[in-house]
Nucleic acid binder design. Sequence first.
DNA 1: AGTTTCGGTCAGTTGGTCTGACCAGAGTTC
DNA 2: GAACTCTGGTCAGACCAACTGACCGAAACT
Lengths: 235, 235
Amino acid sequence: MTFQPITRSTVSAQIREQLLRMITTGELAPGARVPSERELSEQFEVARTSVREAIQGLLSMGLVERRGNRTWVAEHLPDVAVDSDSSTEVFVHQLFETRRVLEVPVFALAAGRSDDGSREAVRAVVQRFEGALTLCEFRQLDREFHTLIASGCGNPLLVELYSKVLDQLFRSWEIDSILTEQREQHEVDEIIRAAVEGHEVIANAYCAGDPGAMASAVEAHLTEIEDSMLRPTTP
Amino acid sequence: MTFQPITRSTVSAQIREQLLRMITTGELAPGARVPSERELSEQFEVARTSVREAIQGLLSMGLVERRGNRTWVAEHLPDVAVDSDSSTEVFVHQLFETRRVLEVPVFALAAGRSDDGSREAVRAVVQRFEGALTLCEFRQLDREFHTLIASGCGNPLLVELYSKVLDQLFRSWEIDSILTEQREQHEVDEIIRAAVEGHEVIANAYCAGDPGAMASAVEAHLTEIEDSMLRPTTP
DNA sequence: AGTTTCGGTCAGTTGGTCTGACCAGAGTTC
DNA sequence: GAACTCTGGTCAGACCAACTGACCGAAACT
């Protein structure tokens, strides 16, 4: 039998990782102000000294900077190291292959198990996509939408697995780079618009309780988005 | 934006959890001797005092006991608390629904992407199922077999997700109870025999590089095993 | 200009973890 | 049965992580 050597994760390391994730996903956008040390120590339920140590780490990584007596997310984030075996295109292919394997059946199950209450909730979320959204706002709502649909499958094991896929989709700074690098604003708007259209088709299949239509809608949505991500950018 | 309060996991808590998992999965079988504190401190790469504290916890839970100057896994393990919302039957249904969603496409992808080297490796593992196996030996080899096939899909994201499904399948003491409770030994042998047959069909589809045959083989295998688990036991 | 908020620093305390040692008793070997 | 080995039990001392509480200078705000 084998034992895994015990790992030690310090409090400040955990804080740093959580903040790092929020920076790379855009939840803490470049140029935004980082909450104060006192506020973060309350939110994380730790001592201020632990928060300080974590922020020192982010400072040394160049992800945040001090201007005056405030802490800010760096305007220009340094490249965050990615797995050396995985180019961007390979990563996107694998991520979407994984989504097809899991999202199509999970969403189809959810459609077949929808009821009036869950349908109402989905309609409400879809309505929030209307109007102008920043990329960050869109991505937050995007995840909320996918999570809500998936939870309708009623199987906590599948929901947990799917949440890990969403973690991959929504935490990678690489994804944001793919979406925005060298793209003009109108191209980003177009990607968001296409995604929102796909969500409406998915929501309709969900509310119709139609697993077959749902499977088709998700397949089409995933193909559209994957193509958008890999489409060459303007020179 | 929301922050997750930081959690602290002590060294002894991590040790206790790992040992607990090994007890519930049968890797540390009832009645078996627990490795000594000094040996465990070497394996876990921690101080002996941390191992002591962990084992004290298992003692107070009744999972291990002291006889003489040795520590033993309890012969009769107390019920390990399970999620109160999930009866055994519901859990099994959800677990197998999850397996169908993930295992069928992942194994089919793997079959389509097999090569001479990976086929040889699969054949070698299948051969090890021959001969008499204890339930514990069977389960260890079972997991190794499934992991090997899944890794053939070539997508690390899918492999990681599938490993979490296997974690659920192989760590639950509840599964062992399902397999052995009130069953006579010949019934357990029969379940193992049927599972090994299913593995051979799966291995043949893999080595033939046939995704369609693989999908059928996995569906049949999962149905057979799920039925075996839920079949009423001898009165 | 006055007030508030922020980052920086510090002393003292607590709990976790470690190293190294020693002992009594159980288990093994001869 | 004696000798040896191995195990769990206990202990002292040290170090580290994390915390509490306080205070200060400077930036930001009113």
